[in-house]
Simulated assay, not measured.
Amino acid sequence: MKAITAYQEVKQKITRDIVNGRYFIGQALPAEKEFAKEFKVSIGTLRKAVDELVSEGIVIRRQGKGTFIAEHDEQRLLYYFFHVIKHDADHKNYPKVELVSFQSATANGEEAKKLQLKEGSPVWRIVNRLSLDGQCVIVDRLTLSKERFPTLTRSAFQNREGSIYQLYQAQYGQSVARTSERLRAGAASKQDAEWLNLKPGEPVIMIRRIALGIEDEPIEWRISTLNTECHEYFSELGA
């Protein structure tokens, strides 16, 4: 097994402290000198560890104030996790989300695999419609493990303050650090076609997304169906 470097070890320790609740959402990390002394490493080693956490969106630096545990505010969610815009548009709008159904179920084979559960494990299945400019453009089907979200209710989900990811983070300590997505062409089902103002069988884009936590644990499995008549999937990669 390849040995990890000093900064990687520090990064792992900070990550574990965040997961275990030592630091709360929006809380500042200790000053660099204090932190480096705790881990018995140089300031340079500490900074390298924190730099990686910043690049992964787990912590953020605020000029003149320090380094803080990242919060899922609306701006971060829009630009990091929502990738749908009008054709040839140069900006994004935050979608309006409507809850269609919230059901208790047992995980099928695909859900169990994606969420690293045993098939038949208890899950929540949620269906949302997302609208832009008054038009439904996406149908989201979410699956969550009941073990991870044991007290979630339809009322709590529907009447949450902020976004879905903010709910996960604020109420359950489940912070989505990144997502893994795969896109494929598909055909609109009868129900999705009705919601998306399409004819059954018309082409759609299927976005299959796993939302991953700070330690790459699967938090949410989501299949999104996108009407591409006036909107498109947008992604920007840095060099």
Rank of each mutant, 00 (worst) to 15 (best):
K2W: 04
Q8Y: 02
E9R: 15
V10W: 11
K11Y: 10
K11C: 12
Q12E: 10
K13C: 08
K13G: 01
I18C: 04
N20I: 02
R22V: 13
F24A: 08
Q27P: 13
L29D: 04
A31Q: 14
E38N: 02
F39D: 02
K40I: 00
G44K: 11
T45V: 10
L46N: 05
V50A: 05
L53Y: 05
S55G: 02
S55H: 09
G57A: 05
G57D: 09
I58L: 08
V59N: 03
G64S: 02
G66R: 13
G66Y: 08
T67A: 07
F68Q: 05
I69R: 13
A70Y: 01
A70G: 07
H72L: 07
H72N: 14
Q75N: 14
R76L: 03
L78H: 06
Y79C: 00
Y80W: 01
F81S: 04
F82Y: 15
F82K: 02
V84M: 05
V84R: 08
V84D: 07
I85Y: 00
K86W: 01
H87N: 13
H91Y: 14
N93A: 07
Y94E: 11
E98M: 11
V100A: 02
Q103I: 00
S104Y: 08
A107V: 01
G109T: 05
G109S: 11
G109W: 07
E111H: 11
A112G: 06
A112S: 08
K113V: 01
K113T: 06
K114M: 03
K114Y: 00
Q116K: 11
L117R: 12
L117H: 12
K118I: 09
S121R: 12
P122W: 14
V123A: 02
R129F: 03
D133R: 15
C136M: 03
V137R: 15
D140Q: 15
L142P: 02
K146I: 00
K146L: 00
E147S: 14
R148Q: 12
F149P: 00
P150V: 02
T151R: 14
R154M: 10
F157R: 03
F157C: 03
R160K: 14
Y165E: 01
L167H: 07
Y168E: 13
Q169C: 06
Q169G: 02
Y172H: 06
G173A: 13
S175M: 15
S180R: 10
S180Q: 14
E181K: 15
R184W: 00
G186T: 04
G186H: 06
A187K: 15
A188G: 02
S189I: 05
K190D: 15
D192F: 01
D192W: 01
E194D: 12
L196I: 07
N197S: 12
N197K: 01
L198K: 10
K199R: 14
G201H: 12
E202W: 10
P203E: 10
V204W: 06
M206Q: 12
R208H: 03
R208Y: 00
R208K: 09
R209M: 08
I210D: 13
L212N: 10
E215P: 11
E217G: 10
E220G: 05
W221M: 04
R222K: 11
T225H: 04
L226E: 06
N227T: 03
T228A: 15
C230A: 13
C230T: 12
H231V: 06
H231C: 12
Y233C: 03
S235G: 06
L237F: 13
G238Q: 09
G238Y: 11
A239D: 14
A239W: 03
